[in-house]
């Protein structure tokens, strides 16, 4: 088991006492593609980032079990976490405009990721960066390596981000809404690229999204989160057999070309879901 989470809780202090953002999530993951779906604030990002212990400074992390390849994350110190971050598990965020360092070149940032976990000269790191840029199908790696993030398009930026996170050869890739900030046509390209790289390297993937059909198409397994809990977990192919009213409600809200409806259904929430 690569990732094993039991009863994960993430809480934030507020003036009116602690507020729980993740309320007892249990999930495990092997070398597979897991999709986590949910609306904003459902706790899907926090759940995934708990694996890397990259939570906001004021968050409190608790769990019955939280381990990565047998390593107890809860007990691990910063030093131990640094050996996991990047090296064994990478994180791709939503918008490369913000997640890339604006004053470092793309090549420099990739080379830095490579050098953080490989022994090698600056020259070797630069060559590795070029090679990685080619792997994420950038046509002119030499030019892009010299470019600053603001000179790249969103799709290019996200390719750079992927190259950077693949540099140390991790076993797990966490993609936190990697295509939400991109144009629809570019979204497909980036997803295909990720699918290809993950398959070729035999990596595990956690794909976080609020796009249920996309995730079910792309992943082996889907977990649906609502108000800090996993309300339903199913094989991607069984999505039509979902039983939880929230999942059903989400699916019903989607327009379908085969069954046109005069009015789209609206999701009616039940307070019992978040109890």
């Amino acid at each position: 088991m690569l990732v094993d989470i039991a009863n994960l809780r993430v809480t934030f202090p507020t003036p009116r006492g602690p507020s729980a953002a993740v309320r007892g999530v249990s999930i495990s993951l092997g070398a597979e593609k897991l999709g986590i779906v949910g609306e904003s604030g459902s706790g899907k990002s926090l759940t995934a980032r708990s694996i890397l212990k990259l939570l906001p400074g004021n968050a409190t992390l608790a769990a019955d079990r939280l381990s990565f390849d047998g390593i107890d994350i809860l007990a691990a110190n910063e030093r131990a976490m640094r050996a996991i971050r990047g090296k064994r598990a990478g994180l791709i965020m939503q918008d490369p405009k913000y997640s890339l360092n604006p004053v470092m070149t793309a090549g420099g940032q990739i080379a830095e990721a490579w050098r953080a976990h490989h022994k090698g000269s600056a020259r070797q790191a630069r060559d590795a960066a070029m090679d990685l840029l080619a792997q994420v199908q950038i046509r002119d790696p030499a030019r892009v390596a010299q470019a600053y993030p603001h000179e790249l398009s969103g799709g290019m930026g996200q390719r750079v981000m992927i190259a950077m996170m693949l540099a140390p050869d991790p076993e797990l890739l966490i993609a936190d809404e990697p295509t939400s900030a991109l144009d629809a046509t570019v979204q497909a390209e980036i997803l295909r690229l990720m699918e290809d790289l993950v398959a070729r390297r035999g990596m595990a993937l956690i794909l976080i999204s609020h796009d249920l059909p996309l995730v079910s198409h792309f992943c082996d397994r889907v977990a649906v989160m609502y108000a800090g809990r996993i309300v339903e977990e199913l094989r991607a192919g069984d999505l039509t057999r979902a039983t939880h009213p929230y999942t059903r409600g989400l699916l019903d809200c989607l327009p379908a070309l085969s069954h046109p409806q005069p009015r789209l259904k609206v999701l009616v929430r039940d307070a019992a879901w978040s109890a």
Partner: peptide, 20 residues
Amino acid sequence: EYVITARAKGLSAARVVWRH
């Protein structure tokens, strides 16, 4: 967010703070 990226790369705290 680039600070989170830098930390996710596994860089040392000093490098995250001073370089990034």
